[in-house]
Structure formats: C-alpha cells, structure tokens
Design a binder for these strands. Sequence first.
DNA 1: TAGTGGTCTAGACCACGTA
DNA 2: ACGTGGTCTAGACCACTAA
Lengths: 226, 226
Amino acid sequence: MIGWEDVRAEVIRRVRDRDWPPGATIPAETALAAEFGCARATVNRALRDLAEAGLLERRRRAGTRVALNPVRRATLAVPLTRAEIEGRGQRYGYALISDGIEPPPLRVASALGLPASGALRHVVAMHFADGVALVHEDRWLNPAALEAEPSFERISANEWLVAHVPFTTGEIAFSAAAADAAQAAALGLSPGAPLFVAERTTWIGAVPITFVRLSHAPGYRLCTRL
Amino acid sequence: MIGWEDVRAEVIRRVRDRDWPPGATIPAETALAAEFGCARATVNRALRDLAEAGLLERRRRAGTRVALNPVRRATLAVPLTRAEIEGRGQRYGYALISDGIEPPPLRVASALGLPASGALRHVVAMHFADGVALVHEDRWLNPAALEAEPSFERISANEWLVAHVPFTTGEIAFSAAAADAAQAAALGLSPGAPLFVAERTTWIGAVPITFVRLSHAPGYRLCTRL
DNA sequence: TAGTGGTCTAGACCACGTA
DNA sequence: ACGTGGTCTAGACCACTAA
C-alpha cells in the first residue's frame, strides 16, 4: 500500500536529485496518482504537506512547481517559561518584582491597539532555573479583558493566563537588546549585556489581552528543525 | 455545505468559550461528524489542523483533548537575507570579506558532525540594506559535499546554495550575542553591541553541507504570528 | 474555457493504546 | 478486546486562473 508519506519521500527525492529542478512544474496530481498507483487524495496530502513546508508552490490551474527560493517554514514551539525550564530537568523559580496600574508607554499601547491615555496593569517578574536568574518578564495586561484580578505573587501571569484565558491569536517578535540597568541588576549581569528578547502580543478575537517582553540571559538559545 | 474550516472555527469557539475546558476530552470524530452533518474526513481535517497548531492533543483510543498548556507552534518563515531586504523595498548589497580553507573550530566541527582535524572552506561576508551594514555572515562549507567550487566574490554563498543544493534537513538556533571586534568594525558598531544571531546547520540526508552564523545589527526583528 | 488544485463524501481497513 | 484516530479509495463538484 502506498501511503502519503511514501509519496512525499519520493517527491523530496526527485527534488533533491534534480529530477525536478527548482522552478520546474511537476506532473499533475492525477498523473502522479496513476504513476504511484494510489488515489489522488493520497498524492494531494503529500503535495499539500510539502507546499506548507515551503518546498513546493501550488496554484490552481497553474499546477505545482518546485519552489525557486525555498523559504523554509520552521515550526517553532513556544512553551511556558516554567515548562521550558522544568523540561530541562532544572528547578523552576519565580519572583514578583512589581505590580501596579500605570499608563502604558506608547509602543505598548500601539502594540495592543489601545489608547495610550488608558491605564494597564504592569507586572515585572523574574524566572529562575536552579536558582539562577534566567528570564526577566515585563508584562502589560488589559484589566478590562480579564474576568478576575489575580495575584501574581506566587504564580506567574503566564501560567494564570494559559489556565484561564485560552487565547486564539497572537504575534511574537524576537530580537536582541542590551540589558538596561534594572534588567542587569535583576539578572546579575553588567548593563549592556546582550539579551535575547521575545515580545508577544495576545488577543482573544479582537480584544487585546496582554503584551509581554521576555528578556533572556546570555546563553539562552531558541532551537528548531526545518 | 460544511467545510473543514467551518468545523475548525466552531471547535476554536467552543474551546475559547470554555464549552470544552482545558484538559477535557471532546466528542469523537464520528459524533462530531454526525452533529455537524458532514463526513468524518472533514472533522478529521479540522481536528488534525488544530492538533498541529497545538490547541488539541490527539491519541488513538484515548480520544481528543483540549491541550492543558497550549504550547503553540508558530510557523516561522526563514528567508534569504537578500529576499528579506528586497522584500522591504530596500536595496540589497553584498561584500565578501574573506574566503579560505581552514581547520574549523571545535564547535563548528561538532555541529556538522565532522572531525575537527579536517579542513573546511571558511567564508566571511557582509549583507547591506540601502548601503547600511545589516548582517555579518560567518560560514563554514564542507567542500567534499559540493559539486563545484564557486566564487563568492559577487554572489553570496546562501544564494549559490539555494540555487545549487536543494537541501532537505537543517537546524536553526537563535540567540543573542555581543559583537566581537571584527563584527563591530564590519557592522559599524561598538564592540559589545547586542546582535541577533541565527545559527543554521544544513545537511543533505546525512551529509553535512554548511554551518552559518548570521549576526544581525541592532534593530533586527524576527516576527511571526501564532 | 479548460485544466488544475481544493475539498467533500461514504465507506473501509488498520494501528495503536487504553481499559 | 475494542474504540479511537490515521489513512486510503473512488468518485464527485467546485473555485480559481492561465491560456
């Protein structure tokens, strides 16, 4: 029995071995189904998977072509900081630094699509791995979008959110930034140390929930396969 | 006609509105198909998509459950530096800094799974956007795996590779690092400036092809939706 | 307008892992 | 053992778009 993964493997082989060079149009699904002796749906499953991965480009009527510049799509798992640390077999620690209502900076307000005149809950906290400061968290929450007003003394906002607010949409941006004085002190680094920064904006539908900036101490790596 | 995207939207709604709270087992595909009045394959398509996105967890016999900690999977497009710059409407520039055969450092050799005693081609180059230095590229190539010995004077190794070596597997790691003296000079920064670093290892099957370290000047952001 | 991919259907068999 | 998801089939209709 020919499975869709067999078809996918054979297509990958033909692309790798240049039977089908970059830019070339490959046979239609019906032709491949006849050649492989399987149903068209099986071929469709394989080609769709490869198109999602970026190896192929598909358009109705125009057919399927081998991608010219393979903009590979990597699937990136974005875990909870806690799960990430415990997944490495380390002891997770958490400490709240500050928590209060403040008017957000302009860039936070615009990221959330909220007026800068309003007031948001501003939470600053730290995450530790085996007692070592690893992540500095700077979060803004939209109180109007939350059912409750939880304390983040012992539980991180991240964990409360995933347990109480199943979010549906969001954006993440990764960058590098120099540690400011407060971050350097909290992370036990010199000011200016390079931090790996993840900025995440979260909505439920069109309602903005939270904007968080996670600054990771040097040595942090975000890995993925493609 | 009920489509699989309709089913997916409805499942998302039920999870968001807590009709199906986190950890709960949802009805089997056959039950949902009957409820929605569509074929099981249509439900399967929707639930499989949501499982790939991380919202659901599926296991044979055990059924489908709403993920407890939604480790969302973001699809990350990893483009060519050139395509990325030109995609922003900027003028792309490229300059070769050095090119030669050298024994690789231990970490490069181990990343590629090659003996550190061998010699690899070491290429250092810069990428510019509108004349401004944006990316510092430090690349090691396995000459034994390449058909030709191309010049990288005018064409970047990245472009030559995507045109001549359709790769199938790879790994990417993102991190932050301080600019060393050479990088700072090449990028027009002060030593110690925070750089966004992407390290990519590429194989064809089990044959290591290249290891590249792309160091991005401050201001660079890698964005994605989830 | 004709050919391609996108999708749905109704049925079937199987692998898997829980009970 | 048995129920669940994983997959394949053969056929059909439709949406899109290039010729």
